[in-house]
């Protein structure tokens, strides 16, 4: 009995020292990406904080064809031009077996032929100079371009925020940690109880 107590105490010390020195960082490779117009912007990191600058980023389209391949900068950030609106799957790989995935849906990516900046510039000049039926036709085209521009601008602003959210969700929670430890001790307690019941019978 004394021995068991001693061993439990010892283990608690170990576990506590573990918890105290804890999240330097966790160990799970993650990648997050969003579309800004026809570019995919993203970041590769280890859940809990540190950037995964050494990872390789590959972008696959809906047919599992490799579209692009880049190495992120030291902060794990990357930016890739994609050919057009499609489903994209982003894969980060540290080449030692760590792999992370992220999916981007078609709706997020702009069609390649729409050049939002040019569209709006022309919109402004046309509105200033011309009037009549030509201007009406132009404004219909420009409306699409404008929509694209707004979508890109919003994606640009919201992207980092979404990444923050994602990182927050990936972060390790103390409840998970304590839950796991509790599970281990509960399982042991259950096994010991089962044995004591068997002995009594």
């Amino acid at each position: 009995m004394r021995q068991t107590n001693k061993c439990l105490l010892l283990g608690l010390l170990f576990s506590l020292s573990g918890i105290c020195s804890m999240p330097v960082s966790a160990h799970l490779l993650k990648v997050f990406a969003w579309a800004e117009g026809n570019e995919i912007v993203g970041n590769a990191y280890f859940a809990g904080g540190i950037a995964a600058g050494g990872a390789h980023i590959k972008v696959f389209d809906g047919q599992h064809q490799l579209v692009a391949e880049v190495s992120p900068d030291s902060k794990g950030d990357f930016r890739i031009k994609v050919p057009g609106a499609a489903d994209y799957s982003i894969v980060a790989d540290t080449e030692d077996g760590h792999v992370a995935h992220w999916e981007i849906k078609t709706a997020e990516v702009a069609a390649p032929d729409v050049n939002p900046t040019a569209g709006v510039t022309s919109n402004v000049t046309h509105n200033a100079v011309t009037s009549g039926p030509a201007a009406v036709a132009n404004s219909a085209i420009d409306k699409a371009a404008l929509e694209q521009l707004v979508q890109t601008a919003v994606a640009k602003e919201v992207g980092p925020l979404r990444m923050e959210l994602q990182r927050y969700a990936d972060r390790l929670r103390l409840s998970d940690l304590l839950g796991g430890i509790g599970f281990i001790f509960g399982l042991t307690g259950g096994a010991l109880w089962w044995r004591s019941r068997k002995q009594q019978q």
Binding site: S15, G18, S25, A26, F46, G180, I181, I184, F185
Partner: peptide, 29 residues
């Protein structure tokens, strides 16, 4: 069964130890 508490303690240590990761090369250990 006498060693079960010890096993639980070490399993808990192992469970927690994986959280303290340090970057090494392109990966972390």
């Amino acid at each position: 069964y006498e060693r079960l508490p010890q096993a639980a303690v070490l399993a808990a240590c192992f469970f927690v130890a994986s959280l303290v990761a340090v970057p090494a090369g392109p990966s972390s250990v």
